[in-house]
């Protein structure tokens, strides 16, 4: 039951997308988001979506997995689409009944918004969630933000905390699972009774879980001190990140996409494809 929760959705692999330097991926993601927002006609935003769809085979991620993880956001996409559909009063009146009037601009605007959200999600999840391990991500973040430590922001400590937290999430899920099973074996019942009764039924899980968190934290702290950990000062790395040709190629690709979007935006469209 707990094991069904896929955390961080990372999908191990060795595709070009996996191999891009995590620092570059963060930069690329920011640039990509800029490109998505630059695209302000239906044609250019569809082009961006197409680009991000192409990332799925490049990253070698099963289509089913991608679709499944988009499902929870379907509601938001449809809801935003509907609001735009009914509230845009521009362009050609397509149909009207009762108090509702639908204009061509409304339809285009609704599709535009849905496509934009989809492109935003798909592109950034393909770049970050599916193809970057959480540890590589924090590592990349730490090094990108390293200059901030000059102005006394403890970048390293935050990154270390994040790394540790990420590292222990699966462990804690496993532990919760185990404790739940152990209490179920003693007849614990989590699914029937009033809310208060159910909340009380969680005590036998939370107390052992908290205790184990504290014990682990304590052990980890001791283990780190034994290895002379004293913060980021003078620390060297086992895996030093280097930008490679692939990283610059990816950067070039996103910049080209941005330039293309800029020009596609300027292409004149027939009136029924306009949003205003």
């Amino acid at each position: 039951m707990m094991s069904d929760i896929t955390l961080g959705q990372f999908f191990p692999g060795n595709s070009p997308l996996h191999r891009i330097d995590p620092r570059m991926k963060l930069i690329l993601t920011i640039l990509y988001i800029v490109v998505v927002f630059m695209a302000d006609t239906i044609v250019s935003v569809l082009a961006v979506l197409l680009l991000s769809v192409l990332l799925i085979p490049v990253g070698n991620i099963p289509l089913r997995t991608v679709l499944k993880s988009m499902k929870p956001l379907l509601f938001i996409m449809i809801f935003t689409g509907l609001i735009n559909l009914f509230w845009t009063k521009d362009g050609i009146l397509v149909c009207s009944f009762w108090i509702i009037e639908i204009y061509s601009a409304g339809i285009v605007q609704a599709i535009f918004i849905i496509v934009r959200i989809a492109a935003l999600l798909l592109g950034s999840t393909m770049l970050i969630s599916y193809t970057t391990s959480p540890i590589a991500l924090t590592d990349g973040m730490e090094q990108l933000l390293a200059p901030l430590s000059r102005i006394k922001i403890p970048v390293h400590d935050f990154a270390m905390m994040m790394t540790i937290a990420l590292r222990f999430i699966p462990t804690l899920i496993e532990e919760t699972d185990k404790i739940m099973s152990a209490q179920k074996a003693r007849g614990a019942d989590f699914s029937t009774g009033s809310i208060i009764k159910r909340a009380k039924a969680l005590i036998p899980i939370f107390i052992p879980l908290f205790l184990s968190c504290i014990r682990r934290a304590d052990e980890l702290a001791v283990a780190m001190e034994c290895r002379c950990y004293n913060g980021g000062k003078g620390k060297t790395r086992m895996n030093v990140l280097h930008y490679k040709a692939l990283d610059f190629a990816a950067l070039a690709l996103v910049i080209v996409a941005g330039v293309l979007v800029f020009f596609v935006n300027k292409v004149p469209l027939p009136v029924f494809l306009l949003t205003k």
Binding site: K178, Q183, P204, P208, S212
Partner: peptide, 16 residues
């Protein structure tokens, strides 16, 4: 579960 009692590995971590 009452008829088949199961003691887990390291059961002391389930005390509460």
């Amino acid at each position: 579960r009452f008829r088949v009692g199961l003691v887990f590995q390291y059961p002391e971590y389930q005390l509460f």
